[in-house]
C-alpha cells in the first residue's frame, strides 16, 4: 500500500518543484534539489518508507530508458550539422571523456580518499547505470558510483549556468559541457535552457556513456600504476 503513495509523493514533489522553478528560476531552486529535500527527510523519518522506496520508484527508473532513446530524434534533427562538424565534435567528446576519467578520481586521490572511493569515481561522469556497472567491474562500489553521479549531476545543473556565463559559452558548447560533465541531470538542465543546448547535451550524454564504458580500463590502469 505504501509503494503507490511513495511513487505519488515523488511525482508530486517533482511537479511542485518544477512549478516553483518555472516561477523562480534561481539555481538554488533546481527541481531535483527542491523535490529531493522533503523526500530525503521522509526516508530519514520512516524506515518502512526507506526500505520500500527503491521498489516503489522503479517505474521512474524504467522511464529513463525511453527518455534516452528519445534523444535519437534530436540527433536526427541535427544530422546535417553533425556531418559538417563531426570530427571536431568527436575531438571534444574524446578529450572531455579522457579528462572525466581522471578529474573527480584524481581529486579524491589527492585529498586522501580510500582506494574504493577513487575507483568508484573513475566512471562517475557517465550516467548512473553505466557508472555502477563499470565501477563494480573494476574494484569500486556501485552504490558509491551512483551517489557520485548524483552529486556530479547536481553540481553541473546548479553551477553550470554560472560557469557558462564566466567562460562565455554559447548554447551548443554549454549543452555539450553539461551533457559530458553532468550526464542526465545536467542534460535535463540543458533541455530547460534552450532547444540547442538540450540537443547538444542529449548527444553528449549518449556519447559520453559509450566513451566512458570503452575508455574506463585506461583510467583504472593509470590509477593502479600510481598506487
Amino acid at each position: 500500500m505504501i509503494e503507490p503513495l511513495l511513487l505519488a509523493a515523488t511525482v508530486g514533489a517533482w511537479i511542485g518543484a518544477r512549478a516553483l522553478y518555472t516561477r523562480v528560476p534561481r539555481i538554488y531552486f533546481h527541481p531535483v534539489v527542491v523535490a529531493g529535500l522533503p523526500l530525503t527527510a521522509l526516508l530519514a523519518l520512516s524506515p518502512v518508507a526507506a526500505s520500500s522506496y527503491p521498489h516503489a520508484t522503479r517505474p521512474l527508473a524504467w522511464l529513463l530508458g525511453p527518455a534516452v532513446v528519445g534523444f535519437a530524434t534530436q540527433l536526427f534533427a541535427r544530422r546535417e550539422a553533425l556531418r559538417r562538424g563531426g570530427f571536431r565534435l568527436a575531438a571534444v567528446f574524446f578529450f572531455a571523456a579522457i579528462s572525466s576519467l581522471f578529474a573527480a578520481a584524481g581529486f579524491a586521490r589527492l585529498l586522501g580518499a580510500s582506494d574504493a572511493t577513487v575507483r568508484s569515481l573513475v566512471p562517475a561522469s557517465s550516467t548512473s547505470p553505466i557508472a555502477a556497472s563499470v565501477a563494480e567491474a573494476h574494484g569500486g562500489r556501485g552504490t558509491v558510483a551512483i551517489a557520485a553521479c548524483m552529486v556530479i549531476g547536481l553540481a553541473g545543473a546548479v553551477l553550470g549556468p554560472l560557469y557558462a556565463r564566466r567562460f562565455r559559452l554559447g548554447d551548443d558548447a554549454y549543452g555539450a559541457a553539461l551533457g559530458i560533465s553532468a550526464h542526465g541531470i545536467g542534460t535535463g538542465a540543458a533541455v530547460d535552457h534552450s532547444e540547442a543546448s538540450g540537443a547538444s547535451a542529449g548527444l553528449a550524454l549518449v556519447v559520453q556513456g559509450l566513451l566512458v564504458a570503452a575508455l574506463a580500463p585506461l583510467g583504472y590502469a593509470v590509477f593502479s600504476w600510481l598506487r
Binding site: 533546481h30 523535490a35 551517489a147 548524483m150
Partner: peptide
Amino acid sequence: SAFLAKQLGLFFLPAAVLATREGS
C-alpha cells in the same frame, strides 16, 4: 521524446534521494 527529455530530472530523483543514504 521532448516531453520525456523535460522530465529527465524526475527519472534521476529516486537515485538522488537514495544516494543521500549511502552508508559507506
